[in-house]
Amino acid sequence: MLRINKLPIAIFLAVIICFPWIAKHIPAFGNYPDLMVFAGIYCLITIGLSLLMGYAGQISLCQAAFYGIGAYVSGILTARYGMNPWLCMLLGMGISALVALLVGAPSLKLKGHYLGMATLAFGIIVFIIFNEEVEWTGGPDGMSGIPGLSLFGFQFDSVNKYYYLVWAFVFAAFIFSINIIQSRTGRALRAIHSSETAASAMGVNISRFKIIVFIYGAVLASLAGSLYAHYLNFINPSTFDLFFSIKLLIMIALGGMHQIWGAIIGAFLITFLSYEWLHFFGEFEIIVYGGILLLVTIFLPHGLAGIPGMIKGWFRN
């Protein structure tokens, strides 16, 4: 858990870089770069969530709210006031961080299920605000006309350009998170996860570390939201509902929340499941998600990323 090999990261990077080229030559993969943009956006959120849940052992059911705050701050400020998108992205992250501090500071002092319910309540309140503040957000109909991104005259005007932009952010977040995990903060987080009492006896300032990770997750989710808004040029509240927060939970439970790879595997699988492979189930997909989450929780507590460890364990016995 502590050591993270460099080789898989290099392979991962190579696959990500080559993927659009591969997809171009296989007709069946035609729309996969588009899906991969979404997978990357979700990865940004799940990486933060993995740190919070897998490493610090705290649950959050309001990541969709931060995702939405990022999207709406970017959407409103760029579409209505013509502000610089990159500045809005930063503003969104700042606002999300502030909100996370205000919500997280009191509730992270509480025990597990209190935090679950507090974040659930907060997520629903934000969702109601997105729906009701029609003047600002456009209400349930959503808001359109959000401009695309450009950097020094370079227009991000194709799927592939967004693909590289999003995955560059994912990769940066990934490396940064690995550094956090291997730092003093990461050790403190794991200590909190195994025993809060022991950790605080060793002098770890529990609530401070929990808040830092909570804010980090919120900032990443907000960044993901801004990217989403600029990629689709349109946002509406239903993207940011409670079920999306639960879907994120399913992603990291399926991938494995105790390893950062799990966040990426889970985001990737659930994106392809929901956009490509689950069409067959139509509206019943919610049952499939519930089933996946329950089976993974019971039979694969360490997720798919934990399978190699499990097999190693069997051989040792």
Binding site: I59, H113, F243, Y289, G290, L293, L294, P301
Partner: peptide
């Protein structure tokens, strides 16, 4: 653990809702 129990009851709730 608190985390797995919360996740399990959430999973059960969306299963029941879906059904």
């Amino acid at each position: 653990s608190v985390l797995t129990l919360i996740i399990a009851t959430i999973a059960a709730s969306i299963l029941m809702k879906g059904t």
